[in-house]
Computed example of a mutant assay.
Amino acid sequence: MTNGRCRMHGGKSPGAPTGNDNARKHGLYTADAISERRELAALLRSMRGIIEEMEG
Rank of each mutant, 00 (worst) to 15 (best):
T30M: 04
N22K: 13
E36F: 05
E39P: 00
T30C: 07
G27L: 04
L43P: 01
G56V: 05
Y29F: 15
L40W: 04
I51D: 09
P14Y: 00
P14K: 01
P17E: 09
R48Q: 10
M47E: 11
N22G: 15
I51E: 09
S35C: 10
M8A: 12
A42N: 10
K25P: 10
K25M: 10
M54F: 12
P17K: 06
I50M: 13
M8H: 02
D21R: 15
E36P: 00
G15L: 00
H26A: 15
L44F: 03
R7D: 03
I34H: 05
G19V: 00
A16S: 08
R38M: 07
R5V: 03
G4A: 01
A16Q: 08
Y29M: 14
A16I: 08
M54R: 14
R38S: 05
R45Y: 04
K25F: 03
R45E: 13
S46K: 14
I51F: 07
K25G: 07
L40Q: 11
M1R: 09
G11M: 03
K25A: 14
M8G: 00
I50H: 07
E55G: 12
G11R: 10
K12T: 08
A16V: 06
S35F: 09
H9N: 03
D32R: 07
A42C: 05
E36L: 11
E39F: 02
G10T: 00
G10A: 01
A16W: 03
H26V: 04
E36H: 06
A41N: 11
T30F: 05
E55W: 05
G10E: 00
D21T: 12
L43K: 15
L44T: 04
I51R: 11
M8I: 01
R5S: 04
S35G: 09
R5F: 05
M1Y: 06
A23H: 14
R5G: 02
H9E: 01
A31M: 02
A42R: 11
Y29R: 11
D21C: 09
M54I: 13
A31H: 08
I50D: 12
S13R: 05
R5C: 02
G11C: 13
S13L: 11
E36G: 04
L40K: 12
R45G: 03
M54Q: 12
E39A: 15
A31F: 05
N22Y: 13
G11L: 09
R5E: 02
G56W: 03
S35T: 10
G4N: 04
I34D: 04
I51T: 08
M54K: 15
G27E: 05
R48A: 14
I51Y: 07
D32E: 15
S13D: 07
R48W: 05
D32F: 04
C6V: 01
A42W: 03
L44K: 14
